[in-house]
Design a protein around this nucleic acid. Structure first.
Lengths: 179, 179
DNA sequence: CTTGAAATACTACTACG
DNA sequence: CGTAGTAGTATTTCAAG
């Protein structure tokens, strides 16, 4: 359980018997195999380790060691199941822009604390521009959003204005980062 | 591999010998155990099936059958690894609002096709209000975003205006739906 | 249509070369 | 990193509520 750095010192000696994977690598000390592993796990992490090892052309233990290192390093933050929004009863998506009354630290802190408790709030960020915050909220339908809007959003602390952008069509929604 | 409906007709007869899990359930034919499984898998899907079974107080085979059913039904859309944005070299988050030149079906279709190919585009949605689209884009830093902005975003087909909201602080970002 | 118990096949994991 | 061996898990089969 020691904090091993990812790909740290994988071949310090200059013997060059068998190149580990990729001589020089573009980012973060991740070689070609690490990136292949991450691409696969970002797409489907329910794959077994032996199957993953075969895909990246590595032995099972070596592959498992890499995955564990990627987890311990924090690069892999977790493995989760993604649900179908509609099937989960959250078929409506709304993006809302929020403007606060005053731009004081207390005002921001208070709002952020309350915003995290809003049911169905998937994202909440401080932004530059004409809004102070953007929130992304999932609800069942327009009725339940109207209820949420009237009962919770309008009562968030320090809010001057809320502008709602209802999502009519979801073109793209992914959790995958380019590697 | 037949298309079994989730929890369909789980107790048609009125014998009431041993209630499978929960007599009546609020949503979608999901009983209490199904929802407990989904809550766990949305939080951490790397848990073993035996551990999951113990958590929801079920035998391992019964638990596994439920998980498979939830996958086949499409409610669980997939199991993926979530990466740390900064560690993955995508520490900057930008929300952009897009207004198109003309509101024709062709114009929308052309834009959507091109938008999906934008590197680092995590979300893209048609919205109501003063914008036609909202996009959520991840990039390495402000330099790389400026490059993306100048070289790709401004050349997306049919774009009249692009408004960028840089994210200064990520308050909340989750993939978990309330159940 | 469901559950749980036992048996088998496969996988994760450890030790070592 | 890979090979071989062990421990534990997933998965099937089956009987029962």
């Amino acid at each position: 359980m020691n904090a091993t750095k990812v790909r740290a010192g994988s071949k310090p000696s200059g013997t060059t018997q068998t190149p580990p994977a990729s001589p020089a690598n573009p980012r973060h000390g991740l070689d070609r195999i690490d990136r292949a592993i991450l691409r696969q796990l970002q797409t489907d992490a329910s794959i077994s380790n032996v199957a993953l090892a075969a895909k990246v052309k590595l032995s099972a233990p070596a592959c498992l060691r890499r995955v564990e290192r990627l987890k311990e390093s924090g690069l892999i933050r977790g493995v989760v199941a993604l649900l179908d929004p509609k099937a989960a009863g959250a078929g409506m998506l709304v993006i809302i822009g929020v403007v606060l009354d005053r731009s004081t630290p207390e005002s921001f802190a208070e709002f952020e604390k309350a915003a995290q408790k809003v049911a169905g709030c998937m994202e909440c960020h401080v932004v530059t521009g004409e809004f102070d915050y953007f929130m992304v909220i999932r609800t069942r339908d327009s009725d339940s959003f109207n209820r949420l809007h009237a009962e919770q959003l309008l009562y968030l602390p320090g809010v001057r204005q809320i502008r709602s952008f209802m999502v009519l069509k979801e073109i793209l929604s992914t959790t995958k980062f380019p590697l």
